[in-house]
């Protein structure tokens, strides 16, 4: 965990999830798992966020909201698709209103499978995403230096 140089803030949006993954994301922040001890805070404002957690597949209504939220986040940013629905569409992939996984709309850095994704695997996914975030930050600094 030595690469956490800043306190990464998280924003969460429910694409079209059944709530199972959403409450597990919230469970990560509460006493049993307590991610806040690493300075990870759940924010509601995309302009404050570094990590974008999306649960559930993308449907016609949430497509624009997910895109909009992603675009409002400052660089560098990472996207974590939480749960099998966010990865591929899951059990709902054949529903008429489901476009597919989150990667149909925005680029995804880490996929967390599971139905519902367990808090341990969500934490693992976020920690991996933080490594990618650090790489992106280093690349940006390199570009800026030249």
């Amino acid at each position: 965990m030595s690469y956490i140089t800043k306190s990464p803030w998280i924003i969460h949006y429910d694409g079209s999830s059944c709530n199972g993954c959403d409450i597990e994301v919230l469970a990560c922040l509460t006493p049993l798992y307590d991610l806040e001890r690493f300075g990870i805070v759940n924010t509601g404002n995309p302009k404050h966020a570094d990590v974008f957690l999306v649960t559930g597949g993308i449907n016609a209504q949430s497509e624009a909201v997910v895109k909009n939220t992603y675009e409002q986040m400052p660089d560098p940013k990472v996207v974590v698709a939480v749960g099998i629905c966010a990865c591929t569409g899951g059990v709902f992939r054949e529903c008429y209103n489901i476009i597919g996984g989150v990667d149909k709309v925005i680029p995804v850095d880490v996929y967390v499978p599971g139905c519902a994704a367990r808090p341990e695997s969500i934490i693992d996914g976020v920690v991996r995403a933080l490594g990618i975030l650090e790489e992106k930050r280093a690349k940006m600094a390199e570009k800026g230096g030249k």
Partner: peptide, 24 residues
């Protein structure tokens, strides 16, 4: 905003398998 249309999936799934979708 989170409409999936899962009631329509009964046409594609066996009624016994659909229990798992009803749960979701």
């Amino acid at each position: 905003y989170v409409h999936r249309g899962l009631e329509k999936l009964v046409e594609k799934r066996d009624y016994k398998d659909y229990v798992l979708i009803a749960e979701r």
